[in-house]
Simulated scan of single mutants.
Amino acid sequence: MWMLAEGLESAVAIGVLWAALALPGWVDVRWWWVALAIVAAVGYMVVVPQWRYLVHRWEVTDTAVYTQVGWWSRERRIAPMSRIQTVDYTESGLSRLFGLATVTITTASAAGALSVAGLDRTVARQLADELTHKADAVEGDAT
């Protein structure tokens, strides 16, 4: 799914570059720029999703949810069960094609919600149910 998403983004970028280079006033060297952009886009499409897969991690314990995301800069977050306010399950159009879903955990943190993306639908539903039950079992008002 990540490869397809990166491929679509790269195709749009190459299309915009192609259209910009077709404007009057550009020299014949412009086709080298398009070729370079295509090579860079294909490289980006292949490398970035694999790198994201190696870095993207999550774990649920009885006391907290741990996530790690990012490929240039890494972000590790911990959300204690007592701070969880909502648990959302979503399927985008693209993720639906691959049978995947995202679980978003909203907390009382100023840093925003935690997301666990690219999960198998069944795993995502089970995770959402598990987090809902664990958060409900913890005393407190999640603020």
Rank of each mutant, 00 (worst) to 15 (best):
G25W: 06
A111D: 14
M45G: 13
L8A: 14
M1P: 01
P80I: 02
W71G: 01
T90V: 14
E9F: 02
V12L: 14
V16Q: 07
A13Q: 08
V39Y: 01
L23F: 07
A142T: 10
A137E: 14
M81R: 05
V16R: 05
V60S: 06
P24Y: 00
I84N: 09
E139V: 14
S82Q: 10
G140S: 14
I38E: 02
T107F: 12
L36R: 04
G43N: 02
A113R: 00
W71L: 13
L114A: 10
L119V: 04
Y89G: 08
Y53T: 15
A64T: 11
Y44P: 01
A142L: 07
V60H: 04
P80S: 11
D120P: 02
P49C: 14
H56G: 02
M81F: 11
Q50F: 13
V12C: 09
Y66E: 07
V87C: 13
S92H: 05
P80C: 06
G140I: 11
V55R: 02
V69S: 10
T90N: 12
T102R: 04
G25I: 05
L54Q: 10
I84C: 06
D136I: 12
V48L: 13
T63R: 15
A37P: 00
A19T: 13
Y44I: 01
A40Y: 10
A117Q: 08
R30P: 06
A108Y: 02
A142W: 03
W33V: 06
A64E: 15
Q85Y: 08
W71H: 13
E6K: 00
V27H: 12
L94E: 03
R121M: 08
G15D: 07
R74Y: 13
G140M: 04
R77H: 02
H56P: 00
V27Q: 15
D88S: 15
A101R: 04
T104V: 12
V39E: 09
Q68P: 05
V123E: 15
R121G: 05
Q126D: 04
E75M: 10
